[in-house]
């Protein structure tokens, strides 16, 4: 907190706004995890935090350190890149696992295996 006093006001306001927006989106996503009814609805909720939520906070962090150190700090791009690559993969794996389990149990909520298709692998 000692360094924040050196930050000019024009940078402090966007940093504060972006931090609040990002944290707010993460909170809304987690509330969605509580509130939505079925699993397939809930799987949409965390994407709020993983896309724009963490994006806003990382942008705020980049702005904060770039202005303070008077040079570009681009570390945060790495986290953004990892997030962009990894989140869809985990969500797809999880959705497929859930679909497979529901089909095993014969749940009526999910569409059946298409008739022409070979049996599900593994």
């Amino acid at each position: 907190m000692n360094q924040a006093a050196d930050l000019p006001l024009w940078a402090a306001l966007p940093v504060a706004a972006l931090v609040l927006l990002g944290a707010g989106l993460a909170l809304v996503g987690s509330i969605g995890l509580l509130k939505l009814r079925s699993f397939y609805d809930r799987i949409h909720a965390p994407t709020l935090g993983t896309t724009l939520g963490i994006g806003c906070v990382l942008l705020a962090s980049m702005l904060f350190f770039s202005v303070l150190q008077t040079r570009f700090v681009l570390h945060e791009i790495l986290i953004t890149a990892f997030m962009v690559v990894t989140t869809p993969v985990t969500l797809m794996l999880l959705a497929r696992a859930a679909l497979y389990r529901d089909r095993q149990e014969g749940s009526a909520e999910v569409p059946p295996v298409p008739p022409a298709a070979p049996p599900v692998k593994e």
């Binding site: 397939y40 994407t47 993983t50 896309t51 989140t87 869809p88 797809m92 959705a95 497929r96």
Partner: peptide, 10 residues
């Protein structure tokens, strides 16, 4: 999948 509201399932 990265777009909120849609998930690619299979």
């Amino acid at each position: 999948t990265a777009t909120p509201g849609t998930v690619w399932v299979e």
